[in-house]
């Protein structure tokens, strides 16, 4: 449902990203990993149509991205980005309802409100509906943003570091929700920092370094300490596994406390 071929993006003389190929099928959860500044967010912005690639192309549901208008694109894909800026006193409900925007032609119908409530329930944000968005804590605001994403009903979902600022319980809950949505036949692309969360929830990982793809495949094959050491330039140790899922820990080069 989402295809990228030879994707590259250049600013001035510098390539922020180059040579990325990927193919996302319905039901896929792809995690994009890599150190800071490796081009993860740039990739997400290219895939979501926010930036136009310098070379290569992206196809969404068989059609090149340029063939979509802004609204057409918004009916097919939804994006959860990192920024949380809001300058007016909107309520959580009003923010979640904005997800219906691409589907409303003329006046909104009762089904738009019904779907907003369903999305709020699913994201466990319904009790927050009447609160001011700005007064919510980081975790609560994230649930409302997720509800907005669900209300948009995109077939491909892009998540930019969705677990930032979330405690372990919310983080697991959130990724579990998107894992379940992939199960229903949607495609999910998530930029993640936590390697273990990626290993737990993604069926495939794409590792970037310096704007270039280093490896792509199942987490159990890609997430090897040797590869991670090369990418992150810090030693990694496999501290165990959950079934076939490796659990990894970066360790400092010097002496560890208590060893």
């Amino acid at each position: 449902m989402l295809e990228a071929k030879g994707l590259g993006y250049r600013v001035g003389e510098r390539w922020l990203l180059r040579g990325v190929d990927l193919n996302l099928a319905p039901g896929d959860f792809l995690a994009v990993l890599g150190p800071n500044g490796s081009g993860k967010t740039t990739l997400l912005r290219l895939l979501s149509g926010e930036l136009s690639p310098t070379e290569g192309e992206v196809r969404l549901l068989g059609k090149p991205l340029e063939a979509y208008g802004a609204q057409g694109l918004a009916q097919k894909r939804a994006v959860l980005s990192q920024g949380r800026e809001m300058s007016f006193p909107f309520t959580a409900y009003e923010v979640a309802f904005l997800g219906r925007l691409p589907h409303i032609a003329g006046r909104e119908g009762p089904e738009d409100h019904a779907r907003t409530w369903q999305a709020l329930e699913k994201a466990r944000a319904a009790p927050l509906a009447e609160r001011f968005f700005l007064s919510l804590s980081g975790g609560e605001a994230m649930r409302v943003e997720v509800a907005r994403l669900l209300a948009q009903e995109g077939e491909v979902l892009f998540l930019d570091e969705p677990t930032n600022h979330l405690d372990p319980r919310y983080a697991l809950e959130l990724l579990g929700l998107f894992r379940a949505m992939a199960h229903e036949g949607r495609g999910v692309v998530a930029v993640l920092h936590d390697l273990n969360l990626a290993a737990l929830f993604a069926d495939r990982v794409l590792v970037l370094k310096g704007g270039k793809p280093v490896a792509q495949g199942g987490p159990e094959t890609v997430l090897e300490p040797s590869l991670l050491e090369e990418v992150y330039e810090v030693p990694f140790r496999k501290v165990g596994s959950l079934g076939r899922i490796p659990l990894l820990l970066p360790v400092p080069q010097g002496v560890l406390r208590g060893t």
């Binding site: 208008g69 802004a70 918004a74 009916q75 994006v79 920024g83 925007l101 691409p102």
Partner: peptide
């Protein structure tokens, strides 16, 4: 960016 993601030209 969010406005664009929501389909605003």
């Amino acid at each position: 960016r969010e406005a664009f993601h929501l389909g605003v030209d």
